[in-house]
Amino acid sequence: MTSSQQEISEEIAKIQADSPRGAPLLDFAPYRSTTLRHPTKEPRHVDPEGAELLAPVFGNSDVAAVEADLTVQRGGEPIGERIRVQGRVLDGDGRPVRRQLVEIWQANAAGRYSHQGDQHPAPLDPNFTGVGRCLTDDDGWYSFTSIKPGPYPWRNHHNAWRPAHIHFSLFGTDFTQRLITQMYFPGDQLLALDPIAQSITDPAALARLIASYDHSRSEHEWLLGYRWDIVLTGSHATYLEPSDD
């Protein structure tokens, strides 16, 4: 039976009344597809070894500069609100993650992905793939020029809509810092209704997925600027176990 938004929102509120957590709950029934896809056993605590201490390395032979501009990948201009999203990738100790790969993907302005599996009856944009890559610079900065993605419906429950978002895939210096997440936009009324976002039950942690509008990054008669920084988990390379005192 398909649930209503009200039923989903009540389920979310009930779970969130318990202790808030900064990482998404893997067992989060309001997002229906988690039911059979979350581990039920506690994870085993292990110290990273060997290949786990070193992230893969990417360089200029892997990524072309043009891949950071999603508005120039095809013959013409994509339709929608032109944006730039910029920010820094930092590790858990605040150090910049240098020269590392950032991959993004997103829906077009109408809320449709250029993916065969997306059958939402909104128009595809022949000038927009919604796919980008770049390398961070020596201070950990990334920058993408794109089109603001539209929200789109999904089948989790009746009248379910995903808030507008950009998927980000990130690497650190350790293999264990690997992160895939979603960046949201400020002021989006759909965030409070969305079981994927609300699986992060600590509001302060969820706020870290929301970009800031940054007028200093907007360009006269051209685009709107957003700032979003990403903090990965800590590197094990130089980490010493804290002492008890």
Binding site: G22, I104, H115, R208, G234
Partner: peptide, 19 residues
């Protein structure tokens, strides 16, 4: 560590971007 950016699902529509 408290400022760590949380993860989110890869979702269903990643193949054209990540493969």
């Amino acid at each position: 560590m408290t400022e760590t950016t949380p993860g989110q699902t890869i979702g269903p529509f990643f193949h054209h971007a990540l493969a």
